[in-house]
Every structure is written in structure tokens, then in C-alpha cells.
């Protein structure tokens, strides 16, 4: 099984894939062999879904938001402050959650990719230069880097001007001041060394970044039942591993960079202002995402 990985092997998500490989190879007594191609050598993130779905490579990992073109509802993970506690995140992302079932099925139908497991990348934070972003007022009129359609809507709702930028481009954009701030994953601040170029790390924790490990569905169906079973069990194990580790990873990332960048904790009142300012994003999500988005939101509201 050839797998295309978008991050380095040493990244926690890469480690996660490696433990999957070990389990699968061990349990199948070496009948299933897994070959990992790290660092997006084979395809860029936006093309992984297409490449795996078409069978160019049998398996890959990609950000969930890269499927937003096929299944707009996947962007629900970025809905601001909808999954604002570890318990809620767990309730949404665990393998038996109804939301996850809806999303996984929709991805399978739209792209011919079977979602094996979800990889937690951690929560989103806002980076800023010169002034911290404590309240939405401070974002007004600022240029903000985002990496997904819905995150852009959030920035618009906050009064900022969103620009879409890939993970690799943001460093230069921050360094050169092409943007005033940006939304990013908390662990990326450490791994991409963004603390070198930004002054403030604002712990908004407004949403959640998810990656998915996907397999070409025809490829999966053609495996023997025993092998399918091994793959599904391994996926379940490593998904749990990463989910349990992610809080620790976030904390250690914060610990490692706390002398390099000013970390801004938001008070409850401040976060309430953010929540208030962004509540229309949900309506927009439903309007553009159709019935599937509506279903996801009503399930989210039941939490």
C-alpha cells in the first residue's frame, strides 16, 4: 500500500501514520506492506483527494478542509466556537458519532475515498503583530491569513479582510508584513517557526483542525475481509492514540515557544464577544452548504 503523506515523517501526524503502518504490517504478518511517501513528494494537499479517489495512489492523508469542494459540509469543524470543549470535540469526532458518519459517507459518495480515520491537528489560534487580538474590534480592517473558506467567513464576520494562503506561504507573508495576522493551528506555530515572525499568539481556540487518512474505496473493497478488518482496527487504534496525545502536544508546543512570542489568553467575556460577532457564520454555512450542512448543524446544536 503506497501512502502519500503531506507532512514530514517526524511530525505527530506522520508518527501517527507510522504507528498505523507498524500495526497493519504486524497483524497481517507482513502480507500488507505499507510504503510512506512523506512531505507531499507525490501530490500537494489539494490534490490528494482527487489522486486517491482516482486510484493514482491507494492511500493518503489530507486536511479535511481540502474536501470542501466536493462536500461543503466538511467545513463544519471550522464553525466558530461550536466545539469549544474537549468533550464536544470527542463527541463529534469519535468513530460512532452521527456527524462523522454523515461526513464520511458524503466523502465516499463524492470522491470514492473511504475515510479510514480522522487525525487531530489541534485547535486554531490567531497570530498577530504589534497588537494582541483580544476582542473582535482589534481585528477590524486587518488583513488576516486563513486556510479555508469558512475561516474566511469568520474573519469577515469579525470585520477583518481574509486572504487564503497555503501553510507554506504564510511564513513569508507574516515576515514581510503582507498580512497583519493569521489563523493557524497551535502546533504549527512551533513546527513552522511562526513565532520568529509574529508578536502575539492569541489563544482563541475558535475551531478545530482535522486531517483524514483516506483509502481508494475500490482498493479497499478488493482486499480480503481479513485484511479489511486489520486495516479498520489499526485505524481505530491510531486515531485514539493521536486524539489522546493532542492536548499534550498543544501544551508542549506552547511551553516550547512561550519565551519567543507573547501568549494571550482570552477571558470568558472576551471570548463571548468573539462568539457574538461570529454567530452569523452558521447561517451562511447552512445557506451555502445545503441540507447536509443543515443536518450537521442541528446535530451540533444537540450536543
Amino acid at each position: 500500500i503506497r501512502v502519500t503523506l503531506q507532512l514530514q515523517e517526524s511530525h505527530p501526524l506522520g508518527e501517527n501514520l507510522k504507528s498505523w503502518k507498524e500495526i497493519v504490517e504486524r497483524d497481517s504478518n507482513g502480507q500488507l506492506k505499507v510504503q510512506i511517501f512523506p512531505s507531499a513528494q507525490l501530490f500537494k494537499d489539494n490534490f490528494v483527494g482527487q489522486a486517491v479517489g482516482a486510484g493514482a495512489v491507494p492511500m493518503g492523508t489530507a486536511s479535511l478542509s481540502s474536501f470542501a469542494g466536493d462536500v461543503p459540509a466538511v467545513d463544519f469543524v471550522f464553525l466558530p466556537f461550536m466545539m469549544d470543549s474537549p468533550a464536544k470535540i470527542e463527541a463529534v469526532t469519535n468513530v460512532n458519532s452521527p456527524i462523522r458518519k454523515i461526513i464520511d459517507t458524503a466523502i465516499l459518495e463524492a470522491t470514492n475515498n473511504k475515510v479510514l480515520w480522522w487525525q487531530s491537528y489541534g485547535r486554531t489560534v490567531y497570530l498577530s503583530n504589534n497588537t494582541p487580538f483580544r476582542t473582535p474590534g482589534e481585528i477590524k480592517g486587518k488583513k488576516i491569513r486563513t486556510f479555508g473558506r469558512l475561516l474566511g467567513w469568520t474573519v469577515e464576520a469579525l470585520g477583518g479582510a481574509p486572504t487564503l494562503m497555503s501553510g507554506s506561504r504564510q511564513f513569508l507573508a507574516y515576515q514581510q508584513g503582507a498580512v497583519d495576522g493569521g489563523v493557524t493551528g497551535i502546533t504549527a506555530v512551533k513546527s513552522r517557526k511562526l513565532y520568529e515572525v509574529m508578536d502575539y499568539l492569541n489563544l482563541t481556540y475558535d475551531s478545530n483542525i482535522e486531517f483524514v487518512a483516506i483509502m481508494n474505496n475500490d482498493f479497499f473493497e478488493n482486499l480480503s475481509l481479513a485484511h479489511q478488518d486489520i486495516i479498520e482496527k489499526a485505524s481505530l487504534i491510531v486515531e485514539k492514540q493521536l486524539r489522546q496525545k493532542i492536548t499534550f502536544l498543544e501544551e508542549s508546543a506552547l511551553e516550547a515557544i512561550k519565551d519567543e512570542i507573547v501568549i494571550v489568553e482570552l477571558s470568558d467575556e472576551e471570548r463571548e464577544q468573539w462568539r457574538e460577532a461570529t454567530k452569523d457564520v452558521v447561517t451562511r454555512f447552512i445557506n451555502e452548504g445545503g441540507p447536509l450542512a443543515q443536518d450537521v448543524v442541528s446535530l451540533l446544536n444537540k450536543l
Partner: peptide, 21 residues
């Protein structure tokens, strides 16, 4: 064949513009 598949499914880009594939 890739184009036909994506066209029939009405896929778009994952960006703000949602450009049709």
C-alpha cells in the same frame, strides 16, 4: 475521464470562490 467524473459530480475548488472543476 477525470474531468468527466468531477464534472458529473459537480465538484468545485475548496476555496472561497468554489470554482467548478
Amino acid at each position: 475521464s477525470e474531468w468527466l467524473d468531477k464534472t458529473l459530480k459537480g465538484a468545485t475548488s475548496a476555496s472561497f470562490l468554489a470554482t467548478p472543476k
